[in-house]
Design a protein around this nucleic acid. Structure first.
Length: 646
RNA sequence: GCCUCUUUAGCUCAGCUGGUAGAGCAGCGGUUUCGUAAACCGCAGGUCGCGGGUUCAAGUCCCGUGAGAGGCUCCA
């Protein structure tokens, strides 16, 4: 007998070799029907694997991450099985589950695969799933595993096996398909009821660009058709919220192939939106003791040699700008920090002056790889909401905490309810990647960890993700449909003060070196606007909306009154438009709703008589008549309630 | 940068196997003067991303190149 401990602490005894599915069945048939995998002593197992020691277990259903991953892992095998049947002789790479589904990397050799093949693949998978093929685990020796794949002529699996430790290597077999795999898997393929092949893409073997490019096929599967339908609806919703689409529809920004890839052109409405965001952050920063500075878009190459950016990123940057003067070279600035260091150095600083907090909406240029460019989220010219805090070492943690407060205030104001924070530390084994002394790195890392703890942030820690000059704290927000975006970043830097020989005079009249914090709560204006659009689906908070109100006369008879309303509102600092086209009111409402304008004011005979407006709120419909002054109060109160005090 | 796909009017898209470009919306002109998500009629609008090639003939086939999409690698 074995003792099985459940998550609630209860213990039951089962015969030696009991399986997960048997345990589930002993609890209820319904559970047995839903369970997908089981964690045994911290390791996720197949439901059909016998338990031979006392164990702590947890059963996983579809709503557990572990359950989904087991499901999708088997689905990846199912897809590979279907592909092998359809395209004999293909060579399999790897096929893991991912956050939303699974993929398999495959060397198709002479076959070419396109979207048109998806239905065929889906159909074959469905057919194989329907056969309820048992998925059988088998331990094999390394030699045996190698021999199997050598015989099959699959170089990728041979490479994978060669890199594995000796000992237990497992194969999973379903029907005539066998794959090298650690597992775990579903008991049989019959669990998979709904299948969708999503996309196709190239992927380097083992993620290394020196290796051969394999074909990666992405798919997703579900235990019920209904769930697939819901997922497809969600994908549609994501498409609707795509900031590139909204940016075009709302006339916020555009790109021109003549201006260049990744160089956004902000249209009047987009510029208005950015301006509102800037004003908002300027106000917050003023309260936190920041001072605005302005620096040029270029700087001498030497500046970046001092900072270390040229050595580190020079080869991936825009080429230096030359001048009529022999030997003179400038760079488009890829960072604002060197300029800000020079501002710090422009006069002697006393310990009493610190912290010095220099802020700038600084536009920088980076030559991102062409394949990486994406809408406003990844561009070659962008404006950081940048600031550099120069402080004494004893002020570091406190300053860091204040920056966290700014970030959290922004998230709150803009209604990002869920967020996580990631502490990125250096990889102590990869010294080549970083500059600076061990001692300073350790001080910086502990300052971040302590500051995050002080504000009770839930953090994850990733080793090896630090910037080359220091560790950082990055913020990720969840948007309205659950997607994660990286936004703000706060970074500690002992390195640049060293390189720029920054100093302050201490109370003992000796010279000391300040510490720097780089921070950008939005990250960049471009990226932030993109995330905001996707989060809100274009329904921006009223204070950010480029156009806040549009006045719609019922017919041309009332356009004089509409103009009076329009002027009155604009004079009251409410950004107002008028739509006095010769169209029916229904048409005007439709068009202006589609433009995502927060308030539509309908004016006709009744309104003109009473000196009122009929208010229609975007997405909510008719709110009835009110006086113009009441409406202005309504708008102002709305703005105030959204912009809560710090 | 690499792989796959896409590129036709301001926007969204149609144009099969090569025979010389089409729709809806937007725009403009008119009719209508209207009460909460699309009134009606008419007009105009395109060197089919760009450059070569094959062909009697290229939006369509081939080569090169720009831009976009989905991934991979990268991200100060």
């Amino acid at each position: 007998m074995v003792k099985i401990t459940f998550p609630d602490g209860s213990i039951r005894e089962y015969p030696l070799g009991v399986t997960g599915i048997e345990i589930a069945r002993s609890i209820s048939e319904r559970l047995a029907a839903e369970v997908l995998s089981i964690t045994v002593n911290g390791e996720v197992w197949d439901l059909t694997r016998g338990i031979t020691t006392d164990a702590t277990v947890k059963l996983h259903k579809w709503d557990d991450e572990e359950g989904k991953h087991t499901f999708w892992h088997t689905s990846a095998h199912l897809m590979a099985q279907a592909l092998e049947a359809l395209y004999p002789g293909i060579k399999l790479g790897i096929g893991p589950s991912i956050d939303n589904g699974f993929y398999y990397d495959i060397d198709f050799d002479s076959y070419t695969i396109s979207d048109d093949d998806f239905p065929k693949i889906e159909q074959k998978m469905a057919e194989l799933a329907h056969q309820k093929l048992d998925v059988v685990r088998k331990d094999v020796s390394k030699d045996e595993a190698l021999a199997t794949y050598k015989a099959k002529g699959d170089p990728y699996k041979v490479e994978l096996i060669s890199d594995l430790q000796d000992g237990t290597i497992t194969f999973y077999t379903q029907g005539d398909f066998t794959d090298l795999c650690r597992g775990p898997h579903l008991p049989n393929t019959g669990y998979i009821k709904a299948i969708k092949i999503l996309s196709i893409a190239g992927a380097y073997w083992r993620g290394n660009e020196k290796n051969k490019m394999l074909t990666r096929i992405y798919g997703i599967t579900f235990p019920q058709k209904k769930l697939l339908d819901e997922y497809l609806v969600m994908l549609e919703e994501a498409k609707k919220r795509d900031h590139r689409k909204l940016g075009k529809e709302m006339e916020l920004f555009t790109f021109s192939q003549h201006v260049g890839q990744g160089l956004p052109l902000w249209l009047p409405r987009g510029a208005q939106l950015r301006f509102q965001l800037e004003m908002f952050l300027r106000k917050v920063q003023q309260k936190y003791g920041y001072e605005q500075v302005i620096t040029p878009h270029i700087g001498q190459k030497e500046l970046y040699e001092i900072s270390g950016h040229w050595a580190k990123y020079g080869k991936d940057s825009f080429r230096p700008i030359t001048t009529p003067q022999e030997g003179e070279e400038f760079l488009l600035k890829p960072m604002n920090c060197p300029h800000h260091c020079e501002i710090y150095k422009s006069k002697p600083r006393s310990y009493k002056d610190l912290p010095v907090r220099l802020a700038e909406f600084g536009t920088v240029y980076r030559y991102e790889q062409s394949g990486e460019l994406h809408g406003l989220t990844r561009v070659r010219g962008f404006t950081q909401d940048d600031a550099h805090i120069f402080c004494r070492p004893d002020q570091l943690k406190q300053e860091f905490v204040k920056v966290i407060d700014i970030v959290l205030y922004i998230f709150k104001t803009l209604n990002f309810k869920e967020y996580t924070a990631q502490v990125s530390l250096r990889d102590p084994k990869d010294r080549e990647k970083y500059i600076g002394t061990d001692e300073n790195w350790e001080k910086a890392e502990s300052a971040i960890i302590e500051a995050a703890a002080e504000r009770g942030l839930k953090t994850t820690t990733v080793v090896g993700e630090a910037a080359f000059y220091g560790p950082k704290l990055d913020f990720m927000v969840n948007d309205a449909i659950g997607r994660k975006w990286q936004l703000g970043t706060i970074q500690v830097d002992y390195n640049l003060p060293e390189r720029f020989q920054l100093e302050y005079i201490g109370s003992d009249d000796k010279r000391y070196r300040p510490v720097m914090i780089h921070r950008a709560p939005f990250g960049s204006m471009e990226r932030f606007v993109a995330v905001l659009l996707e989060h809100t689906g274009g329904k921006l908070p009223i204070w950010l909306a480029p156009d806040q109100v549009v006045v719609l006369p019922i017919s041309e008879k009332y356009s004089d009154y509409a103009k009076k309303v329009f002027n009155y509102l604009n004079n009251s600092d409410i950004r107002t438009l008028i739509d006095d086209r010769n169209e029916k009111i229904g048409k005007k409402i439709r068009d202006n709703e589609l433009r995502h304008i927060p308030y539509l004011l309908i004016v006709g005979e009744k309104e003109e008589e009473n000196g009122t407006v009929a208010v229609r709120v975007q997405g909510e419909g008719d709110k009835g008549q009110m006086s113009l002054d009441d409406f202005i109060m309504l708008v102002r109160n709305n703005i105030e309630s959204q912009l809560t005090e710090i």
